[in-house]
Nucleic acid binder design. Structure first.
Ligand SMILES: [Mn+2]
Ligand SMILES: [Mn+2]
Ligand SMILES: [Mn+2]
Ligand SMILES: [Mn+2]
Lengths: 225, 225
DNA sequence: CCCAATTTTTAGGTTAACCTAAAACTAATC
DNA sequence: GATTAGTTTTAGGTTAACCTAAAAATTGGG
């Protein structure tokens, strides 16, 4: 309900793609976005720079793409408009899935807040959606598909839980070291124990047992399994 | 139903504006279009050049802007989409007139043929429009507001009818002469008589009686009153 | 550690759609 | 006919959003 800086259609599409990719794959890479939107990777890269400047994503060179708070909000809004429009076109008007989806992704950028909220009302009244499921916030959605299995840093995982490595955030030597220990993307890890001050964390990876310092573990992005 | 060269959003808006202005004022001038779309006249001028190249309008330097056959078709399609969307947003969803109109003029460019025709079906079923009134051709519309009081050349006006000068198509000396005779824009004329071969046409303007050669009369665009 | 494959970034374009300012032209009056 | 006001066009920009090709960094094995 605040400022809501005017985003261009492209910027909205980038945000939506990032949101969807993170939800599906756990991460949104430049090439994934490029394939999704059918544009060159270098164009995506430029777009991301702008989103970064606007504070909608956080991106360090070669680093993973994350939505900031305001970026997430904006992405959800676009996605919600897209889904509303899709439902309306497909379910109410009987437009084919392909056309409905295609048109929805163009119209989503042109729908004012007023029209959007009136359309939500209409869809609720006609039982195509449930009240709390979409109304402007898509609350339920945040929990159900869970934004792709909760992502957090390895040092935050509680003892006994299992997780899968998504990305190693650090660079250079440390990254090398961690990867050489078998902490590659996709590797399954289990947190076996933690010393009193949290400092050496004991994990099991690919059968091996490993001790990690907390600051090392804090560099490893994982998703709970 | 044919080729339907891809028009950009801007080009569609130009065509729509031209169509509406001709209908309302009898002519579409560069400045009118510019005011209507809230852009600079020079930008409109550039846009018109492109439309001209595409064969959608016919435009000679400093001359009047006319829609060609295909331009008219394209303009009608855009206008029809605009009106459908407006009706849907305003009448069905209850969106305010301003928002409905504003959104309609953005969405009109994003609506596929399929979605458009399904929406027309929907509006017909819900009695917001009549079948032949809009279905893709807007037939009725062409006649009712009559594309602004039938425009034709003065030599085609039948004896006894009255008309109003819209534009003098010729240039230079002849135009000067005709204007000096009082045939300015807005002047009311009455065709009093015509010689056997149609040649000298007798008209009355601002009280005076005048004789015009047929080729002179053929340069004067008028609308019937 | 080193290498090849992949990914990301940079460098250097193009195009559509705008803009302002100034020039060229037209309209209407004196 | 000349003057002035208004309109249209040209000239010379800017910006967003793309592109291709090449450089730089990362990934995952050997
Ligand atoms: Mn979109
Ligand atoms: Mn979309
Ligand atoms: Mn429009
Ligand atoms: Mn419109």
């Amino acid at each position: 309900m605040e400022a809501d800086i005017n985003l261009s259609e492209s910027m909205e599409d980038y945000l939506e793609a990032i949101y969807n990719l993170i939800k599906e794959n756990g991460s949104a890479r430049v090439t994934d976005i490029a394939n999704h939107l059918k544009i060159a990777a270098s164009s995506v890269n430029q777009g991301l720079k702008k989103l970064n400047q606007e504070g909608l994503i956080s991106q360090e060179k070669y680093g993973p793409i994350k939505l900031t708070e305001s970026g997430l909000k904006a992405a959800e809004k676009v996605r919600c408009k897209h889904r509303m429009l899709y439902l309306f076109l497909h379910k109410t008007l009987g437009v084919s899935q392909e056309s409905a989806d295609h048109d929805a992704c163009r119209i989503e950028h042109a729908l004012s807040e007023e029209s959007f909220s009136k359309m939500v009302d209409y869809l609720i009244k006609n039982n195509y959606i449930e009240e709390q499921n979409c109304a402007f916030k898509m609350k339920a959605e945040k929990e159900e598909p869970k934004m792709a299995a909760e992502q957090l840093m390895l040092d935050k995982i509680k003892v006994g839980s299992k997780a899968e490595v998504v990305k190693i955030e650090s660079k250079g030597r440390l990254k090398r070291k961690l990867m050489d220990m078998g902490l590659n993307k996709g590797a399954k890890v289990e947190v076996k124990g933690r010393a009193p001050m949290g400092d050496p964390i004991e994990i099991k990876v690919r059968g091996y047992s490993l001790s990690l310092r907390q600051d090392e573990a804090a560099e490893i992005l994982v998703k709970e399994v």
